Simulated scan of single mutants.
Amino acid sequence: MSVVMFGGTGFIGSHLAARLAERDVRVVVPTRHAQHGDHLKRLPGVDVIEADVRDDATLQRLVDGHTAVINLVGILHSDRGTPYGKAFRRAHVELPQRIADACARAGAPRYLHMSALGADVRGPSMYQRSKADGEQAARSRAEVAATIFRPSVVFGPGDNFLNMFARLQRHLPLVPLAGANARFQPVYVGDVAEAFVRALFEPHSAGNIYELGGPHIYTLGELVRLAGRYAGHERKVVALPDAVAHLQAVFFEMLPGEPLITRDNLDSMKVDNVVTPSTKVLTAEALGIKLTALEAVAPAYLAPDGQLDVLRARAGR
C-alpha cells in the first residue's frame, strides 16, 4: 500500500507518518520546502518531496499511482469574506476539490480527509463554514470513496494548543482569556493518527464520517489552568467579557505574524466543540480505539523537562 499525504510535515502528519511506517505503508509527503520534512526522513518508507501542490499538473503527478490520498491541510486564520475569506477558500475548499478530481483521474480509490468538529455550512465562523464546504468538495466525486474525520482540538507532544498556554503562563502573571467557558473535547494525536490508519485498512470505513473527541469535556479555562499546572507555572485565569474579548481579538489581528486569537476564532467558540453522535456520524469507538485521557499524556510533555518526549515523538518513537 502506498499513500500521498498532503500537510504531512505538521504536528498530526508527523505522528501519522510514524504510524503508517510501522504498518509498512509507503508514504510520500510533498512540501514546498524540503527542510520542513527533515524529521520524517528517518522513518522507513517515508519520502519527503519538494513540490508546489498549487500547480494542478504537480498535484496530479503526486496522486498518480497511489492506493490512497490523505489530506491534513488546514489553517486557523484567514482574511475576512462571505461566506469565508480567500485563504480559507484555497486551503479548505479548493484544495480538497482539486485532490478529489486528481484521485478520480488517477483511479485512486480512497481519500481520507481531515475536517473539524463544528463544520457547518451555516456555522457562525468562516472556519466552520469553509470546513463544511471542504467536506462536500472531498466527497464530490462518486468514484472516489472519501472518509471524513472531524477532530476536536488535538493535543500531544509538539502541539500548538496546550503548549502555547503553558508558554504564556511561564511569562505572564495572569491569563486574560477570551471564550473561557467554551467547551472542548480534546483528543490525543495518537488516537487521531490511529483512526486514520485503521480507516485506511478498513474498506467499510469508506464514505463514513468520524467525529473524534477524547474521553472528557473541558472548558477552555480549565484547559488553560491544566496546561499551566503541568508546566509548573499555573496562573490565575481571568475570563474576559465578550466586548473586551472582541477588542482583544481585533488588537491581535493588527499585530504582525500569526495572531493569538481572531474574531473568527471567537465566532467558532460560540458552538461547543464536542462530539455529537448521530445516526449518520460515527466516533473513534467505531474503529475500536480506546481513547487516551489528557491527564495520562499532557503532564509528561508539558513538564519543564518534557522536550525529550517531544523529540522522541517527532522521531516516531
Rank of each mutant, 00 (worst) to 15 (best):
V281N: 09
Q97A: 08
D38A: 14
Y218E: 09
G10D: 06
N163E: 13
E295Y: 01
R26V: 13
F88Y: 06
H92T: 01
R314W: 15
V46A: 04
G37E: 02
L247D: 15
Y218D: 10
S125V: 10
R122M: 06
R54G: 13
A206K: 09
P277H: 08
A166F: 00
E234Q: 11
V237T: 11
G134Y: 07
P96M: 07
L177A: 01
F201C: 06
D55N: 07
P256A: 02
V27Q: 08
F184C: 13
V3P: 15
P277Q: 07
L255Q: 14
T31S: 09
L294P: 06
H246Y: 15
R198N: 10
E234C: 10
R314T: 14
Y218V: 02
H246T: 12
Y301D: 12
A104Y: 04
L308V: 12
Q307I: 11
L311A: 15
Q169Y: 04
G214T: 06
L20E: 00
P44L: 06
G37L: 09
A239G: 05
T147L: 01
L162H: 03
E253A: 07
L112N: 07
Q60N: 08
P30H: 05
P157I: 02
L172A: 03
E22H: 13
L95H: 01
T292N: 08
A315F: 13
